[in-house]
Computed example of a mutant assay.
Amino acid sequence: MSAAEDAALAPGVDTPDQAALRDSVRSLLDKRAGSEDMRAATRTEHGYDESLWSALAGQIGASALGIPEAYDGAGASYLETHLVADELGRSLAPSPLLGSAILAGYALLASGDEAACAEHLPHVASGVIYGLCWSGEEGWHAPGVAFDGAALSGTAHYVLGGDYASTLIVVASDADGLPTLHACPADAEGVGITRVPVMDPTRTLATVRFDGVRATQLGMREETMSLLNAVAWAAVSAEAAGAAKALVERTVDYTSQRKQFGREIGGFQALKHRMADMYVRSETARSLSYSAAAAVARAFEIGGSNAAHAAACDAEIEAAAAKVYATRSLSWIAGEAIQLHGGVGITWEYDVHLFFKRAHGLATLFGQPHELAEALEPAAGLRP
């Protein structure tokens, strides 16, 4: 399916400019992020193709899409950023987009701190790599770093691209357990960064330790953490939707060529039913993901008004639901794809196993699906 046809099927992503953006991103990734390119990128020092990132950030402006023009950005909405995440998920191309432009960039935007935005967002827009330190050892519901009113101490886990980020945005908790937001150079005194082993070779993670680090404290709004949750979950759902679509397409192509008993195995009714189920789950995940993206975009547009907190909570709920469904669907679709590829599905020569690893990585990123599903229950809901 072409990029233009994909745009027409994605709710809220059907303008000519958005279709052109998707086409540009897909064209670049098709040319420079094929299977061999993607695998080669995972073996580089930082785990991604720096020249490809320069093209995404410099030529297409992917890192600047959601940043207001006042901060040297493109002035588009979160929807455009979501669209790029979808395409990156489809190709599995290793990229700093999620950790830097999405997590760190939108954390700055969500803070409402104009001075911090003016200082940092032009760098994010230009493609400079930022990292968001957020999760504690037990997960993202509780920061691993504490702020004592003067300095940061503790350990942030699962930091995307933390081993090569130049600046860190840190979510911490104060003495009362309330979240605080900070910024510091990655090479600041007292900061220790260790790259950790991962199951998914297309994404790097690091542990960042803070030992009495003096960092600049940023302002925060009431809705800041809800917005950050919503952005993180929506972006993961975008990658999952893109990866699910790619797996469906690859499985259909493979079963259309593989022959058994003198005919293509894709012609067998039982396999047709399984691929139809894969397609339905993929498209449902895609619909939920773009609905969540639209809610996130509205929440940032409303930012700062009296209705901002309610909009942020609505976006948080939609994004949580999209993350749960999209990652669960991708995990199931990846399992089906391996089965339908037969014995070669799990071999190194085929990329299906890499999608399988990405599926499990996305499922755990920013909270396990069952944790978010429980939070969506009316009794424990995300809305205060």
Rank of each mutant, 00 (worst) to 15 (best):
G144V: 05
T251C: 09
S305I: 13
M225E: 07
A93S: 11
A55N: 04
T207H: 09
G192C: 03
L376T: 02
G342T: 03
E239L: 15
T327S: 05
L168W: 01
T180P: 13
G89E: 03
D72L: 01
A175T: 13
L288P: 00
A142G: 01
E264G: 02
L56Q: 13
G149D: 13
P384W: 10
G262P: 10
G335L: 13
I317C: 06
A359E: 06
E119T: 14
V231L: 08
Y78D: 04
A3E: 14
P384L: 12
L178K: 10
S63G: 08
C133R: 05
A246N: 11
G343E: 15
D30R: 08
R203N: 05
S282N: 01
R43K: 14
P16G: 02
I67D: 09
G112H: 03
S91Q: 12
G34Y: 05
L83W: 04
L79V: 13
A110Y: 00
S35F: 10
E264P: 13
S95I: 09
F261C: 04
D17K: 09
L29C: 10
S100V: 12
R298N: 03
I129R: 13
A3C: 06
S111A: 03
A232W: 05
A107W: 02
A142M: 07
T202W: 00
R39K: 06
T327D: 07
A241P: 01
